[in-house]
């Protein structure tokens, strides 16, 4: 069995800080791997290794079963791995359309007259954002003048557009409204259906559970648990993550998202979630009192 991408016992240190120690995680085509953990658990560090921004100090990283050494995110992009970074990786003074295609510019013409295809780039950006329900006034608008949620949507739309095989999302719903958060979860399900591997990072089990197939829980840089969904009731996941009481709210969020987007998968996920959430809440109350 070869995985689309696989990190095998990778470690990463920053000076004295051991950010990751012997962490293994993998994603298969058509599956969603969720990486969960508290703040500082090492989630972002792990995905920065997967996307080529950091090189691991130990362990191996394989793509299609073959060990690789990415020296920059460029290499990862060329292997079809696109990432939404937690800090979004945008340049505030640059136009939306320039940010969208930054590093992967859409060109036309032959050298030395090779140039950016501005009209097509702008059209693509407007279309891709439109699919997310975001309508920007002008693709020339500087990213720095967008709202936080709009910026996040641009980053996600960009990764979805360029992610040919693997999509890595680092806390993609953090700044989003209910509708856009629903859209992101729908994107995750769509990508999965198209046979992409998705890695979804979050510290919120209620975001992860409805869409995930496989859960890796990090704690202080080490793997604390690694489960397939079948082996892990939501209740247990919530317990492991400790805390997270606003289940009802999240259920509503999902349901509303399913209604506004009219997505059946999401509606199904929401109702599954509702049942399991009810159990978990019951349990949570027992614990608390």
């Amino acid at each position: 069995m070869t995985y689309l991408i696989e990190a095998d016992s990778v470690s990463k240190r920053f000076g004295n800080v051991v950010a990751l120690k012997d962490v293994s995680a993998q994603v298969q085509a058509g599956e969603v791997t969720c990486i969960l953990g508290d703040n500082g658990a090492g989630k972002s560090t792990l995905i920065k290794i997967l996307c080529g921004l950091y090189q691991p100090d130990g362990g191996t990283y394989s793509v299609d079963g073959k060990p690789v050494q990415f020296s920059s995110p460029r290499d990862a992009l060329e292997a079809g791995i696109a990432t939404v970074y937690q800090d979004l990786a945008m340049v505030p003074l640059m136009a939306v359309w320039r940010n969208f295609f930054l590093g992967s510019e859409l060109e036309k013409g032959v050298p030395p007259f090779r140039r950016i295809d501005v009209a097509k780039a702008k059209r693509t950006v407007v279309d891709e954002l439109g699919k997310m329900g975001i309508f920007i006034r002008d693709p020339e608008q500087e990213v720095g003048t967008l709202s936080g949620g709009e910026r996040q949507s641009v980053a996600i739309a960009r990764a979805v557009y360029f992610g040919a095989r693997v999509l890595i999302l680092d806390e993609p719903t953090a700044a989003l409204g209910v509708k856009q958060a629903g859209v992101v979860l729908r994107y995750v399900l769509e990508a999965k259906k198209r046979g992409l591997g998705v890695i979804l990072i979050t510290h919120n089990p209620h975001h992860a559970y409805p869409v995930g197939d496989h859960f890796v829980i990090l704690r202080r840089g080490e793997v604390y648990g690694d489960y397939r969904k079948e082996d892990l009731p939501l209740e247990q996941l919530v317990q492991m993550m400790a805390g997270g009481a606003d289940l009802e709210l999240l259920h509503h969020e999902l349901e509303e998202a399913a209604q506004t987007t009219g997505d059946e998968d999401l509606a199904q996920a929401a109702s599954d979630f509702a049942n399991e959430a009810a159990d978990a809440t019951g349990h949570g109350h027992d614990d608390a009192t």
Partner: peptide, 28 residues
Amino acid sequence: FLLLRSRYGNWIFSVGGNAASARAVGVP
């Protein structure tokens, strides 16, 4: 032309505007 219409121009603006972001999306 280089600045406004070539990809190198995009790269120049990005390394000055936010080098870390530029690196993260694959700009050398």
